[in-house]
Amino acid sequence: MRIIAGIRKGRQLTAPAGTTTRPTADRVRQALFDMLVHAPWGGAGLLSEACVLDAFAGTGALALEALSRGAASACFFETDRPALAALRKNIADCNWQERCTVLTKDVTSPTKARKPCSLLFIDPPYRQGLPASALAALSKGGWIAPGAIAVIETADNEPLPLTDPAHPAPQSEPEQVTFNGTLLAERKHGAARLSVWQL
């Protein structure tokens, strides 16, 4: 696993052993960032000087990729000890300690934000309804800037994780927590689905 592009292109990233952490594959990150940079709603300005939030951060690969491509700062939420060790090593190996904040707190009950974030990566365990509940908690804590973009990874056969009037949830899928957004793009990669939302 490595950083794909930008000022840290080619930098190897550490991942913890075992299956608890599920890093986003290099090819999927490449496809995602190509979309973020080239989509009509995206562009270089989406990453330039952005404040990035990486929820369920794991290795931190998504936000570290954003930093390599021009983001200004990143905040990582992670509670798993092996993942935290890998995350901190990856930040140190990139020499980005001053640009990164690691919070060892559950993202569904975050502390109050110092600064709202304009780009969010939400890559939780599948099929637990976590994207909407995490975003609701982050919104309450002041973490989400107006019009922020959220990239959410789910299993390919999960219902869409947020509510969009143009893509209503099936009646057979009751939701415990809802969060509204506009669906900008959706891509499937193997067993994973990436959906991009404007919040």
Rank of each mutant, 00 (worst) to 15 (best):
R2L: 07
R127I: 10
G181H: 07
F33N: 01
T178D: 13
S109R: 15
L36R: 07
H167D: 08
N90V: 01
S139I: 10
P110K: 03
L64W: 11
A145W: 02
G6T: 00
F56R: 08
G45T: 11
V37K: 15
L64K: 08
R27W: 10
T108S: 02
S68Q: 02
R2P: 06
H189V: 00
L130E: 05
S73K: 06
S133L: 13
R8I: 03
R127T: 11
S118E: 00
P170Y: 12
L103Q: 01
I149D: 04
I144P: 06
L62M: 14
T14A: 10
S139H: 15
A25G: 02
R22L: 01
F77R: 08
P161F: 07
G147E: 11
A63I: 00
L120S: 00
Q171C: 13
E173C: 14
R2D: 10
G10C: 02
C117Q: 04
H167F: 11
R8E: 04
F56D: 08
R69L: 09
C100M: 02
E78V: 05
C94Q: 12
I4F: 01
P174I: 11
R187N: 15
M35T: 14
G142L: 03
A31K: 09
W41S: 13
T104C: 14
R88T: 13
P82Q: 06
A57M: 06
A15I: 08
A15S: 11
A113Y: 09
Y126S: 03
L87C: 03
M35D: 13
F121G: 00
R193D: 12
D106Q: 15
K115W: 12
A134I: 15
H38A: 13
F77W: 05
D54W: 07
I91S: 10
K188R: 11
P40I: 09
D106L: 13
I7N: 14
P125M: 09
L46N: 03
E173R: 10
G42F: 07
A86H: 02
A83C: 04
T79Y: 09
A137Q: 02
S133K: 15
R11K: 12
V52C: 06
N180D: 04
A155Q: 03
C75F: 06
S133C: 14
A15Q: 05
G147F: 06
R187S: 15
I91L: 10
V177I: 15
K188N: 08
G60F: 11
D123G: 15
A192M: 13
Q176A: 12
F77M: 08
K112E: 13
Y126Q: 06
P131W: 12
R187V: 15
P16R: 01
G190Q: 05
A169P: 11
E175S: 05
F179M: 14
I4C: 03
